[in-house]
């Protein structure tokens, strides 16, 4: 891996972005990289937009990723992908879950959900990989593994050996959920 890599994980509070970022940072540490991660707790936990920023490289100073700097955006929801798309750099990759969660502003009719959110993301980022992670998770029998499905899809795009991802997964999730999470990771990897 050359230089510092910046990865944004974006979604809706409660979708499990934090676990995904934990596995990601564990992988990075195993590779011997300096790692920084930042996220905002508090109000955002309650169904609001959430963003986790991960940076890894030989030496990382700022934990912040700024517009035009992200190498990867992993979006747990379509609208959130669109909200953060200007953070992607010109060669960046987007992994987007096609799931749609209406924000309260849309629910009460004060705003409209952009029906072409996914198309806008694809237009802005030629390297966009979209998958229905919710449907994949449902087929695996637990909608809570959406996060690990998406992580699998991202792992495929990154320059890190698959075994390293699997051992980070093993080190992060409780043993009784490990098999399910392995399947979720694989399903995302193959999607």
């Amino acid at each position: 891996m050359k230089g510092t890599k910046s990865i944004l994980l974006v979604g809706v509070g409660g979708q499990g972005t934090i676990l995904a970022s934990k596995i990601l940072t564990n992988v990075a540490i195993k590779q011997g990289y300096d790692v920084k991660m930042t996220e905002i707790h508090g109000m955002a936990q309650r169904g609001g937009s959430v963003v986790t920023q991960v940076r890894m490289g030989e030496k990382v100073h700022s934990p912040l990723i700024e517009p035009g700097q992200a190498d990867y955006i992993v979006a747990f929801e379509q609208l959130e992908a669109l909200r953060w798309i200007h953070f992607l750099n010109d060669a960046g990759t987007v992994i987007v879950n096609t799931q749609r969660i209406n924000p309260m502003t849309v629910i009460i009719g004060s705003a409209e959900y952009p029906s072409d959110a996914l198309e806008q993301v694809k237009a802005a980022a030629p390297k966009t990989i979209s998958l229905d992670a919710l449907e994949i998770a449902k087929k695996l029998g637990n909608i809570r593994v959406v996060n690990v499905v998406l992580l699998g899809a991202m792992a495929k795009q990154m320059d890190i050996a698959k075994e390293d991802w699997l051992s980070a997964l093993e080190a992060t999730v409780p043993a009784r959920f490990l098999e399910l999470n392995r399947q979720a990771f694989q399903a995302g990897y193959d999607a």
């Binding site: 309650r46 924000p103 952009p114």
Partner: peptide
């Protein structure tokens, strides 16, 4: 880069 127009998602 300018951000795309998106409805805000406040905490609820």
């Amino acid at each position: 880069k300018a951000p795309a127009a998106t409805p805000i998602r406040p905490p609820v």
